[in-house]
Nucleic acid binder design. Sequence first.
DNA 1: CGTTGACACCTAGGATGGCTAGGCATAGCA
DNA 2: TGCTATGCCTAGCCATCCTAGGTGTCAACG
Lengths: 107, 107
Amino acid sequence: MKAQTLKGHLDGLLLAVLADGPAHGYSVISALRDRSNGEFDLPEGTVYPALHRLEKAGLLSSSWSADAPRRRRVYAITPAGERSLRQRRTEWRGFTSAVDAVLGSAA
Amino acid sequence: MKAQTLKGHLDGLLLAVLADGPAHGYSVISALRDRSNGEFDLPEGTVYPALHRLEKAGLLSSSWSADAPRRRRVYAITPAGERSLRQRRTEWRGFTSAVDAVLGSAA
DNA sequence: CGTTGACACCTAGGATGGCTAGGCATAGCA
DNA sequence: TGCTATGCCTAGCCATCCTAGGTGTCAACG
């Protein structure tokens, strides 16, 4: 997958993963890989800054887990994050139908 | 539509429009607007550099039209451009199905 | 006849954000 | 003792969409 393809769409993917329950960064990466059948195998340098960004925006909250063998920062979606996710899903549908309309050759 | 949403997808849209026949930049913009039901109302500063880029990459060819009242640079898709378009359509399908899988909540 | 607006082209620079490439530390296994 | 997987982080690169400006033609309106 080309580098720019994902631009602007990553945040929604992260929110969607975390909407199913809290998780730490590393597991978000593998969840993304699994759910997308390997299509999204994202480097840490992509995901961590994005998680920080979302937390800063108030869409995620995080805390260090104490019980795990290794230190982990666990992220959870906030109510604002869920609202944002709903909106992003709607926008995504609009975007895809517009692209599909232009690309044509639906057949 | 947010600025980054389109990133990496514009070239395919332009190729798709020009696959239906040669056109000049300004008309590409309105074709894009029409085909997408107004979703893609792109500024010239987005489209012109993209057309230049695609021509430089050999996916489009251009020439100045002599017959038009105003000077127009008319773009046409090249065989390489058509190949690229086919590939981009395939990638787009893969990308959307991956995003849909992650976003879930198809309902 | 001047001005406005559509047409038609162009480009420099800003901003965004994913990726590369590095770093650090712990745990488990050969 | 290494190697691999886990787990976190960041500086800077770079592609590219957009903003904001520029040029010029032509038709219509007051």
